[in-house]
């Protein structure tokens, strides 16, 4: 498998701060995976995201050590325009990334910057607009649509550039549950239909867990745990020690396991549906 993103002994300290935001990070992300990056606020997740798409160090001052490579090419050796075509970044506040007067202008902005022809822009619009379900919004100002729609517009504007790596920095932090679900529906389609490499910094674990192939725990600037989703969430005590609070269904079965009511060897269910099945099985066995 090809490595899409590779951090090697990577450290970053913002100027005028004493602590390093990221410390000696070593991380490899394979192509085509959907990766969840979790950790408490201030742990360095956004710094990690910005380091991938060159905003760090191009837009921020600080001290950088080690390397970040996208498809084996060092980030600092690529120019920003080239890098944006490799790693698309969706910000947590969609409004912060709007640069145009209408949704349509917003979505085509990145494609125009890439130098695509009118025909290519039209083709990509035909693909991304239905995918993100923003057909009705094209003529509207992007800052006047609802929160969920804003985030879908932000996602469409990055997706239209078709970057091989898509990085989303807390894309649902400002959304209601329906808005969150719709964003994850789009990400699910991207994963299934286009095998995109998607990295999501996210707190909403109930939506992330069913989709993620790999999970990364970032805590106080360090990557403490990297594992496939299922074994990752089996280490629930460790995660909770680091202020990661899993969805209720996981925590419930974890308690059952600790009290000896759930087999030690069995995997914890990752969704309510799966939990229901496990619980029925458990009750049948008891009876």
């Amino acid at each position: 498998m090809t490595t899409a993103v590779r951090f090697e002994n990577y450290s970053w300290r913002y100027s005028r701060t004493k602590e390093q935001a990221l410390k000696e990070i070593n991380l490899e992300i394979e192509e085509g995976l959907l990766v969840g990056v979790i950790g408490p606020n201030g742990s360095g997740k956004t710094t990690l995201a910005y380091s991938m798409n060159g905003l760090i160090p191009n837009q921020y001052n600080g001290i950088r050590k080690g390397s970040v490579k996208i498809y084996d090419e060092e980030v600092t050796e690529m120019d920003q325009a080239q890098l944006c075509q490799q790693v698309g970044l969706v910000f947590s506040d969609p409004e912060a990334q709007f640069t145009a007067m209408t949704v349509e202008d917003e979505v085509v902005f990145g494609m125009e910057n890439m130098g695509l022809t009118y025909q290519e822009i039209e083709e990509r619009l035909d693909w991304v607009v239905p995918l993100t379900d923003i057909e009705e919004l094209m003529e509207k100002p992007p800052y006047e649509v609802s929160g969920g729609q804003k985030q879908r517009v932000a996602l469409a504007s990055v997706l239209s550039m078709r970057p091989p790596v898509l990085m989303l920095d807390e894309p649902t932090s400002m959304l209601d549950p329906i808005g969150r679900r719709r964003i994850f529906d789009v990400l699910g389609r991207l994963k299934r239909e286009y095998q995109s490499t998607i990295i999501i910094v996210e707190h909403s674990l109930e939506n992330l867990i069913p989709l993620a192939d790999l999970m990364v725990l970032v805590y106080e600037g360090e990557v403490l745990l990297v594992d496939e989703t299922e074994p990752f969430f089996q280490k629930l005590d460790y995660l909770m020690e680091h202020h990661i609070y899993p969805p209720g269904v996981l925590e419930f079965f974890h308690h059952l396991k600790k009290s000896g009511d759930y087999p030690e060897a069995s995997a914890l269910p990752e969704s309510v549906g799966e939990g229901e099945k496990q619980l029925r099985r458990l009750l049948e066995n008891k009876a």
Partner: peptide, 16 residues
């Protein structure tokens, strides 16, 4: 934030 947003989508004021 705005500066980040336009840089993240490959815009350069001097043209590419």
């Amino acid at each position: 934030e705005f500066a980040n947003a336009i840089v993240a989508r490959g815009y350069s004021f001097t043209g590419l």
